[in-house]
Design a protein around this nucleic acid. Structure first.
Length: 462
RNA sequence: UCCGCCUUAGCUCAGCAGGCAGAGCAAGUGGCUGUUAACCACUGGGUCGCUGGUUCGAGUCCAGCAGGCGGAGCCA
């Protein structure tokens, strides 16, 4: 008899019949003559209570000794539970002990700190919190693909190793097979990367955007969703050295279409997670952050505010608030500014557009004022910037001028410039850190707790 | 990288005025016929982060280092 998942059993509309489940004990309560075992298989937030009586042939030898964490296979009858707190329970007819635990099993029935659980990342998926996090992460991931697939976007696998050092977004990890103790040198005494694996310097990708633009110029609408690496020495609750990024790119699209896509994307993913993981989301709302459900629902319902950078600066100047970093037109918006805009002033997500060209990347579309570019940042309460995007500069002469102004080397961008020579069209896209959105939905304070195995400066265990 | 706080049993934490190292949970043993972080009793469990200093005496005071956390910068 094939075994059932706990989720399916709990969703049944009536008890009765024989079931087989396999899972791990969340807790075991032993009394004289019988035991209650709560078995979880990760299929949903809740486990199911198993009642084991002393009539079982291995009751004295095995069942009585079961501890939290033991793996079991249970077959029995699904019955209505007379106790409080659960609809059904399983009256065990046979319990096979599949895997015992040593007595130093670190997970207990009480609350653990997230700091401690990070040190046992191989066991933390078994906790309520992390089970819920990973199910929500999965649901969000599924929603990302569904959203784009339903709209005819092509999933593009952009490279993880890149030899172009022109991506320009942050510090990169080097990829090499050279002997670091004695690398080959050229005549000037510099490391000779011609002898390296790729015949040139190579790095882990910091963005798939430029490759996504290539694909968009043929397939019209594409998206990437893959691992991304930043070698920055960032020690914060919002940064990882390895994270997952989503980058859609649309041909024949301007900044307005980009904003529309970003807004419907966020709403879609949030709604999908609410639909797929109601119990997990209820848990986050009850135990982690009692505003997550209300915030998500209001984001889904309310149109996002849209303001320009210039308007944002005005709002900040007129706010009467003193910020640690003073606001002037031309400065980059700091976390405190973004938070004031989205949390205090507008009180919902806001898309800020048309930033000064001096604080944005070379590839963003230059406005007619010659001062601002068609960039857009989506700011949400609590997290701040969750999406950053832009309409891309599709005019070759202006792109070349911008590359010159920023003292970049045209040669490094030869293929990117080529795209502006061969059938160039207006196009736009954005980037989104996947963990940021999972953080936002779950209310988890530290980004290290929404990815199974976090990589941060000084730490890559597991 | 900068600023601040923290580090005592497997976990969460007390401890003070510088004078024998504590509790709850977990684990072990026993008890209990419906539990829900079950309950009751008993037992075992410690390099008080590391190094140095002050002192008759340091978990406690001082310095340095390491690790963790929070905030900031960089950024998604």
């Amino acid at each position: 008899m094939e075994h059932a998942r706990v989720k399916e059993i709990l969703n049944r509309n009536k008890s009765g019949g024989n079931v087989v489940i396999k899972g791990w004990l969340k807790t075991a309560r032993h009394s004289k003559g019988f035991s209650f075992l709560e078995v979880s298989d990760g299929s949903c937030f809740s486990g199911i209570q198993v009642v084991a009586g002393e009539g079982l042939d291995n009751y004295d030898t095995e069942i009585k000794k079961l501890l939290t964490g033991c793996a079991v296979s249970v077959s029995g009858e699904l019955v209505d539970s007379p106790g409080q707190g659960q609809k059904y329970e399983i009256k065990a007819e046979k319990i096979a002990v599949v895997g015992l635990v040593d007595s130093d099993y670190p997970l207990q029935k009480k609350r653990h700190t997230y700091e401690f659980l990070r040190t046992i990342a191989h066991l933390r998926p078994r906790t309520n919190s992390f089970g819920a996090v990973f199910r929500v992460r999965n649901a969000a991931s599924k929603a990302v693909h569904h959203f784009f697939q339903e709209r005819g976007f092509v999933y593009l696998h952009s490279p993880i190793i890149t030899a172009s050092d022109c991506e320009g977004a942050g510090e990169m990890f080097k990829v090499t097979t050279l002997d670091l103790k004695a690398p080959p040198r050229d005549e000037a005494g510099k490391i000779d990367y011609k002898q390296d694996f790729f015949g040139r310097e190579a790095h882990l990708t910091v963005s798939g955007q430029l490759e996504a633009e290539i694909a968009a110029m043929a397939l019209s609408n594409v998206y990437t969703f893959g691992p991304t690496f930043r070698a920055e020495n960032s020690n914060t609750s919002r940064h990882l050295a390895e994270f997952w990024m989503i980058e859609p790119e649309m041909a024949f699209c301007d900044i307005r279409g980009d904003m529309d896509l970003a807004e419907s994307f966020l709403k879609y993913v949030l709604q999908s997670v609410l639909n797929d993981c109601p119990d997990d989301m209820q848990f986050f709302n009850d135990r982690i952050d009692n505003t997550v459900l209300a915030t998500m629902e209001s984001i889904i319902k309310t149109p996002f505010e849209r303001i320009t950078y210039t308007e944002a600066v005005d709002i900040l100047l007129k706010s009467g608030k003193t910020f640690e970093y003073p606001v002037t037109w031309g400065c980059d918006l700091q976390s405190e500014h973004e938070r004031y805009l989205t949390e205090d002033h507008i009180k919902r997500p806001v898309i800020v557009t048309d930033y000064p060209k001096t604080i944005k990347a070379f590839y963003m579309y230059l406005n007619d004022d010659d001062k601002t570019v068609r960039a857009m940042d989506v700011l949400v309460p609590k997290v701040g910037e969750i999406i950053g995007g832009s309409q891309r500069e599709d005019r070759k002469d202006i792109l070349l001028k911008r590359i010159g102004e920023l003292n970049l080397n045209e040669k490094d961008y030869w293929w990117y410039i080529d795209l502006r020579r061969y059938g160039s069209v207006p196009h736009a896209g954005f980037g989104l850190g996947f963990e940021r959105i999972v953080q936002f939905m779950t209310g988890m304070g530290n980004i290290r707790d929404v990815i199974p195995f976090p990589r941060v400066p000084g730490y890559a265990e597991f």
